[in-house]
Write a protein that binds this DNA or RNA. Structure first.
Lengths: 223, 223
DNA sequence: GCGAAGTTGAGGGAACTCCTCCACTTCGTG
DNA sequence: CACGAAGTGGAGGAGTTCCCTCAACTTCGC
């Protein structure tokens, strides 16, 4: 499934056992990355799959390739969430649910979180999928602002920063209280409603898209 | 100043040049830790001080000791902020300003941020200073709640988590926009005001002090 | 049953860090 | 001023961790 999307210049098919192992590797990578993030080594993934390291390297030239193979379609999942949000009845609920559902995915999958917040993992397909997300998010934001429920000085780039904040809560508290992040997303959402702002304007302007890009290149997973 | 607070069993005084170097080391550590955090090696600090590594190790058995020597009094600074907050006129302003001023210190000094958010740096004196902070914070919170301005379901441990969130914003955005964190603290503060609540209660309970302790032992600086 | 394809895991090599050691320098007292 | 004690420097040992290779071995499938 993830497989045939690559250019394909009629590569000879893998031997049956090799194909089986390839699947084992991907399954293992999904497990390991989702639990331990990209800090995990290919050695870890190999052992978790019950295979030798060499086998993994024979199939995937580098960690990058594995990531690429694994996460492109998961990002499209989030794209689907966003599109769905555009058709949802109440504009505020659409906005809030998009944040909530995305954060919930982040909480379940450390690897996904890292791909989303950093520009340092995966190239090509991952980058494309992310690029497709931006205009969608902008629409959801605009709709919520137009409806007068989301504060007017909110910007689409704020979404990314909010995910960074919630991401750090997830990172550190999920062993102790896996759902605690919902509390702080709750505070943030309350703070984002138009009828709650006390100060007319938030201090400082939001990041422009270019600066956000830079920030996301700096972003590094913890340890 | 930081100096004579240690037990002192009449250690013979340092030779004049050695004492000078000791000061250089501490100054250098202040610079380097504040900019690069505790990721910095003692080698870095030595070179930045224009000294050899050996000299640093002769004076401070380990990084821990240096940290201890440096940060205990900075934490007391924050304690002073908190006490000051207790006498400030408006209870909400006291609360909000405490968060703001503390975050501003964090933004200026990566080392301080790391000591505050983690239980893994510095022992003894640092731990003491932190312990003294807790009841103060609790009072400030209680006063703001009693005045009806801070939402009733806020807890003192939320302060630490908020600093983690803001800390991650600082960490990643300060090269691009050093003051951007104020924007998100602004959102949080608006979300914390009691009036015009949308949801009656935040989802999930706050951490208890014990769990927070655990979380802070897990906390690690980035990279 | 044979050659091509696949597998294995010890270990090479690179990047870091912490810290030690001892030949050398400097201090300051007698 | 000279001499012993105190202090200094920084190459390098020891420990990690990680990425990836390769040569000996196994399995597949025609």
């Amino acid at each position: 499934m993830t497989r045939d999307t690559v250019p394909v210049a009629t590569v000879r098919p893998l031997r049956r056992d090799a194909e089986l192992n390839r699947r084992k590797i991907i399954a293992s990578a999904r497990d390991v990355f989702s639990e331990r993030g990209f800090g995990a080594t290919l050695d870890d993934i190999a052992h978790h799959a019950g295979l030798g390291v060499g086998t993994v390297y024979r199939r995937f030239p580098s960690k990058e390739h594995l990531v690429e193979a694994m996460f492109a379609d998961r990002l499209d999942e989030i794209g689907a969430l966003a599109e769905q949000a555009l058709t949802e009845g109440d504009p505020w609920d659409a906005f809030a649910n998009l944040l909530l559902r995305t954060a919930a995915l982040h909480a379940d999958d450390r690897g996904l979180r890292e791909v989303m917040l950093s520009n340092n993992f995966g190239r090509e397909r991952v980058a494309e999928s992310k690029a497709r997300l931006i205009p969608l998010a902008m629409k959801v934001v605009q709709r919520a602002k137009d409806s007068g429920q989301l504060r007017a000085d909110f910007e689409a780039t704020d979404i990314a920063i909010i995910h960074m904040m919630i991401g750090s809560v997830i990172e550190y508290t999920q062993d102790v209280r896996p759902e605690l992040w919902r509390r702080y997303l709750g505070v943030l959402l309350d703070g984002l409603r138009a009828d709650r702002c006390h100060e007319a304007e938030l201090p400082r302007k939001a990041l422009d898209v270019q600066s956000l890009e830079t920030v996301m290149c700096t972003w590094q997973p913890h340890h």
